[in-house]
C-alpha cells in the first residue's frame, strides 16, 4: 500500500524502534574511529611537552634538588675549571628586568586597551593600533633587541634598563590585545546599568569595566610576563651579561636565558649542569606566573 494509514500505529502495525547501541553500524564505526584519532593526536601533541619536562627534571634536578641548592640559587657563576658556583645573579637579573618591563608595559597596555576596547573601538586610531598590535605579536623577538640596541644601547650602553625596555616592547602587544578582549567582553547591558545609575564615562570604566574585566586583564599580564621571562634574543643586544649581582640598573645584567645560552656551549661539566638547572628554574618561574595568573584570574564573587 502506498498511502500511509494513519491508524496503523494504534492497531499495532508499528514496529518498535531498535534503540540499543549498534557497534558495527557504519556511523558508529566512523564516530569511534574519529574519536580514537583525536585521542592519538592529543597524546602525540603532549609528547614533546612531557619529554622536555622530563629532560629538565632529570638533568637540572640533580643540582636543584641536591645538597648545594642554596649555593646553586644564590652563588655567582663559576669560571672555567671552577667547581660549584650558582645562578643567583641571573635569577635576580631576570626578575628585575621582567619587573622593569612590566612597570613600563602594564600601565601603557591597559590604558591603550581601555581606548581600544571601551572608549572608541571603531575609530581609525583604534583599528590601526589593533592591527599593529596583532602584527607585533608575531614580531621576531630579536628585532625588539635590535630596535632597543639602536635607540637605547648605542647612547647609554648595555644595561638592565635597556633589557627591560626590550622586554616591554615584546610584552605590550600581548597585553593590549588580552586586556582589550577582556574589557570588550564586559556586556553592554552592564555598562548601560552604570550609565543609568548616573556614572560618568570614567566611573563606568573605573568601577564597572575594569573590575569586571580584571580577571582577564591579569591573565593577559601574567602570560605576557611569563613570555618575557623566557626571552633571550632581545637581551643579547641590550642587557648583555654579567657574572655579578646587579648593583645598578645602568650596568650590564645577567639573565637566566643568556646564562643558559652561554653555559650550554661550554666544554665544562659544571657549567653544562648549571645551564640545565637554570633551564629548570626558568620553567618553574614561568610556571609560577602561570599559576598566579590562574589564581588571580578566578572571579571573586
Amino acid at each position: 500500500m502506498s498511502d500511509i494509514d494513519s491508524t496503523s500505529r494504534l492497531e499495532g502495525a508499528f514496529a518498535l524502534p531498535q534503540l540499543d547501541y549498534q557497534a558495527l553500524e557504519p556511523r558508529a564505526l566512523k564516530s569511534g574511529f574519529l574519536t580514537s584519532l583525536t585521542w592519538i593526536a592529543a597524546l602525540l601533541a603532549s609528547i614533546p611537552l612531557f619529554s622536555v619536562i622530563y629532560m629538565l627534571l632529570a638533568q637540572g634536578g640533580t643540582r636543584l634538588f641536591g645538597a648545594d641548592v642554596v649555593e646553586v640559587l644564590t652563588g655567582l657563576p663559576p669560571a672555567g675549571f671552577e667547581i660549584g658556583g650558582g645562578i643567583g645573579p641571573a635569577i635576580l637579573g631576570t626578575l628585575v628586568m621582567v619587573g622593569i618591563a612590566s612597570a613600563i608595559s602594564v600601565p601603557f597596555g591597559i590604558l591603550a586597551a581601555v581606548y581600544l576596547g571601551v572608549l572608541d573601538p571603531t575609530s581609525k586610531i583604534a583599528t590601526t593600533s589593533r592591527f599593529l598590535a596583532k602584527v607585533l605579536t608575531g614580531f621576531p623577538s630579536i628585532l625588539a633587541g635590535v630596535f632597543v640596541y639602536a635607540v637605547v644601547v648605542i647612547h647609554w650602553g648595555y644595561s638592565a634598563l635597556a633589557g627591560g625596555v626590550a622586554l616591554a616592547v615584546l610584552m605590550l602587544p600581548t597585553l593590549v590585545l588580552a586586556a582589550e578582549e577582556a574589557m570588550a567582553q564586559v556586556p553592554q547591558k552592564m555598562k548601560d546599568a552604570a550609565y543609568g545609575m548616573g556614572c560618568t564615562q570614567t566611573e563606568v570604566i573605573w568601577k564597572v569595566v575594569l573590575p569586571t574585566g580584571l580577571p582577564g586583564i591579569l591573565t593577559g599580564v601574567m602570560l605576557a610576563v611569563a613570555g618575557a621571562a623566557g626571552e633571550s634574543a632581545p637581551l643579547l643586544f641590550t642587557a648583555l651579561f654579567s657574572n655579578y649581582y646587579i648593583s645598578e640598573l645602568a650596568e650590564p645584567t645577567a639573565s637566566l636565558s643568556i646564562l643558559i645560552y652561554n653555559f650550554s656551549g661550554m666544554p665544562f661539566e659544571n657549567q653544562i649542569e648549571l645551564a640545565w638547572t637554570a633551564s629548570l628554574v626558568l620553567v618553574l618561574i614561568v610556571l609560577l606566573f602561570n599559576i598566579l595568573a590562574r589564581l588571580v584570574g578566578r572571579p571573586k564573587v
Binding site: 556586556p187 547591558k189 552592564m190 548601560d192 546599568a193 552604570a194 543609568g196 545609575m197 548616573g198 564597572v208 573590575p211 569586571t212 572571579p299 564573587v301
Partner: peptide
C-alpha cells in the same frame, strides 16, 4: 542620578 532606570534585561554588575 535623579531619574533612575530599570532595563529590559536584568543587568546586575558582576
Amino acid at each position: 542620578r535623579y531619574i533612575g532606570m530599570v532595563f529590559q534585561q536584568p543587568n546586575p554588575f558582576s
